[in-house]
Every structure is written in C-alpha cells, then in structure tokens.
Design a protein around this nucleic acid. Structure first.
Lengths: 170, 170
DNA sequence: ATGGACACGTGAAGC
DNA sequence: TGCTTCACGTGTCCA
C-alpha cells in the first residue's frame, strides 16, 4: 500500500473543506445585516432569515389575495354610490362639496367588511346607514361617527359578513 | 501546565462541533425539498432557496405596491370632493427594508383636521402616528383605531389646528 | 478496492 | 492572558 492513497485522501479532504468553506461564504453573502461571520452565527442567522422571508412571503401572498377581493369591493362601491360622474355641471361651485357626497368606500377581507362614509350631517343618517348595512345581513362589530366641519360627518363601520352577503340566499 | 487545559480544549471543540452540527440540522429543517443532506448541499441549497425567497418577496412587494396604487387611483377617481394640498410624508428608516405604502388621506376645514390612515398593523404605529401628529402642534380631539383583516388597521384622527400649523412659528 | 462524507484531536491565530 | 474559532491531517464508515 503506497503512500499515494494517503496523500489523495488529504487532498480530497482539502477539496471538501474548501468547497464547504465557499458554501459558508456564499451563504453569508445573501444574508443581510450579518454582524458575526462565525460559522455558527451564519447558520443561525440563515435559519432566522429564512424563517423571516417565509413569513413575509406568506403575509404578502395573503395580502395580495385579499387585495384582489378588496378591489372588487371598490368597484362595487360605484354601484352603491348615489351619484357618479356629473363633472360637467358643478365645476364652479365655490360653496363646495354639496353634491359630491356621500363618499362611500368599502374594503373586504375574508368575512370582515370595513365601510367608510363621508357625507353631510343630516339627522338620522347614522340610523339610515346602519339600517342599510343591516339589510346586508352583516354583524356590525364596531362603528364610529365623527362630526367634521360642522356640516359633514365621517362614519366608519366594521362588520362581519354572513353567507348571505355573498350568495344573496337565506 | 496540567493536562486539564488540553482536555478542556478538546471538550470546547466538541461543543463547537456539536453546536454547528445542530445549526446544519436547523438550517436543513427550514429548506423544503431537500434531497441531499450533505453539508455542502445544505449550504448550496440554502443559498439558492434564500435567493428564490428574496426574488419572490421582491415580486410580491412590487405587485402589492402596484395594487395599492391602483386602489388609491380608483378611490381618487371616484372621489369628487374638494381636494387641496395632498401631503405625502415618507420618513427615512435606517433599516430601509420597509414596504407597502400606507394609504393616507387628509381633510382640512378651517382649523379642523381629519386624517385617515390605512396601513399594515405593525406594533407602535398608533404611537408613531400620534407622535407625528403631535409634531404639527395640533390638538387631537378624537381618534379611533380599528383592526381590519388582522394584518391592517384603519386609523381615524380628528384634530384642531393651532396657528403654528399654518405659520410654523411658535 | 475506491471515492465521498463525517467526527475527532490538535496546533495556531485573534480578541 | 485565557477563551474562542479555524484549518489541518487522520481514522472510519458506507455505497
């Protein structure tokens, strides 16, 4: 048994070490904010960073999915709006903001509905709004109303949707 | 020099090896679809997987940002109210890894300010918002915060402006 | 036998 | 000064 084999073993092990040393370098290169260049620290921070990325991806995917539904809700908003367009007539209204109300915005995520209404402060608007919302067979979980500039109010309503909201069937 | 130091050295090195061996195990645990459990393969696949996640996050962030802009555009398009002085405040964060824009809407009537913010639900956002508003030397008269879809919150703040808000002079 | 992968003990270098 | 981290050579196991 010549010593050639032993030397080959040494060289092979040297190659292996060099290879995974470069692996550590490449790994530490893709991890941002790396203070310690320790091998153990690199591995630990790599695990932490991968978990963060996975969580972030999951959150972003969830968000994008919900955003799509929200967009649909936003489009549906024009159907709920009393008036749209009409930019030809009221251009020179210095008194302002009389005919543009009510301004309604709806967001939908899963079964949670967020409705924001900015309109004139008339008597019974809150009751009217809540009764309209009740017709949708949703459960109002939170609602706030703020008087703004005396003549207008800002209503924010949070509600939980039932299956009727989607199917229209009781 | 007793042999205790030499033995301690051996033990220490043993601990170190065990530590980073567990590091390899933990790392390989968070990497899906791992065929080879080689140390070198773990490192290589970790690098590849991290790059994939980073690319995916970047794409998703771009998508969400685009969706957000589209949503805001939709809202602005359907909005007929008097819009004056759209202010967008973007603070410079040291981390620089911030994403997805908050949706900020401000209304001003005489000395009454109505601010509505729809953003991600991070810890301390309410405090941040209120501190930022306080810097404007306004008096917050009413504020409501609603958690929506778990990941986002809807903040509505009503405040009274002081002369500093207009003149910048105390 | 042959090559690849691993853990071990050991000497050296950096705070 | 010790404590830590690293690379090295070596023995061993497995396909």
């Amino acid at each position: 048994m010549g010593p050639s084999h032993a030397q080959d073993h040494i060289i092979a092990e040297r190659h292996r070490r060099e290879k995974l040393s470069q692996g550590f370098i490449q790994l530490s290169a893709v991890i941002p904010g790396l203070k310690k260049m320790d091998k153990a620290s690199v591995l630990g921070n790599a695990v932490k960073y991968v978990k963060e990325l996975q969580e972030r991806v999951k959150a972003l995917e969830y968000q994008t999915a919900k955003r799509t539904i929200e967009s649909v809700a936003l489009v549906k908003k024009s159907k709920l709006s009393v008036d749209d367009g009409g930019s030809s007539s009221n251009k020179n209204n210095s008194d302002g903001a009389e005919n543009s109300f009510p301004e309604i915005e709806a967001r939908l995520s899963d079964k949670t509905i967020l409705v924001r209404i900015h309109c004139e402060n008339h008597k019974g608007v809150m009751v009217k709004v809540l009764s309209e919302i009740e017709k949708l067979h949703v459960t109002v979980t939170d609602a706030s109303i703020m008087s703004f500039a005396g003549s207008t109010i800002n209503i924010t309503v949070m509600a939980q949707a039932s299956s009727y909201f989607y199917t229209g069937q009781l």
